[in-house]
Design a protein around this nucleic acid. Structure first.
Length: 210
DNA sequence: GACCAGGCACATC
DNA sequence: GATGTGCATGGT
């Protein structure tokens, strides 16, 4: 039998088309977005990012210097604004102190070490770390989110109780490690999740037959 | 008004 | 290791 993950990818790409996902004007904006979108609607994240932009605060240096209180007020629309202000600060401190806030420097670090460093930052868990690695730094890691777990478990491919790393291993074993593929596939899974595979599923019309 | 959103840290057993 | 809870805005 053919690789089920490749079958699913082909079906979803054919059905939805390319997603052109996670656009951001700069890699740093994508990193910030990865933290702000934790358990949060993307539309709210965009409002927060706009506020930061208008405040001239879309640079590592600006956020590094900013008072927590002002930062949390700017990102208020994204929800959890107090805790996310701390998380942004923790990340930016790491980025400034280890890489001088320079994308080219952080990009030079090998993927495995960098993932460990990111996971060591307070407020960055596996999904946020992998989103930064894939979407901002173009490293070939597959991002697992709640939709990914839900879709695979509902289709009997892997039990939902399995760990983040187990889900990720399945993708890494099943697919060639290519950034454009991982990027597009994850985006398609989120699209499918939003349309058909929410907690209360409305499966009618879903291209993945049960 | 209920439900949900591109999670994570921390407490407790 | 598994389970429960706090964090919070805004769209449907």
């Amino acid at each position: 039998m053919r690789n089920p993950l490749i079958e699913i990818y082909d079906i979803l790409l054919d059905f939805f088309g390319p997603q052109d996902w996670w656009p951001g004007d700069t890699p740093f904006e994508v990193m910030i977005g990865a933290i702000l979108t934790q358990n949060t609607n993307w539309g709210n994240v965009q409002k927060a990012v706009r506020n930061l932009m208008h405040a001239g605060a879309l640079t590592p240096h600006a956020i590094y210097k900013m008072e927590n209180e002002r930062l949390s007020e700017l990102i208020r629309p994204a929800g959890y604004y107090n805790i996310k202000a701390k998380r942004l600060k923790s990340f930016v401190e790491f980025f400034m102190e280890k890489y001088s806030g320079r994308t080219d420097k952080i990009r030079e670090t090998d993927m495995t070490s960098l993932r460990e460093y990111l996971l060591g930052v307070n407020g960055i868990g596996p999904e946020t770390a992998d989103s930064i690695l894939l979407y901002a730094l173009e490293k070939p890691v597959f991002v697992i989110d709640t939709y990914t777990k839900r879709i695979l478990s509902r289709h009997g491919i892997m039990d939902s109780s399995e760990s983040y790393d187990s889900f990720q291993e399945l993708f890494h074993e099943s697919l060639p490690a290519k950034v454009p593929l991982f990027n597009e596939y994850h985006a398609l899974l989120v699209k499918t999740g939003k349309e058909f595979c929410r907690p209360k599923p409305h499966c009618h019309g879903c291209p993945l037959k049960r």
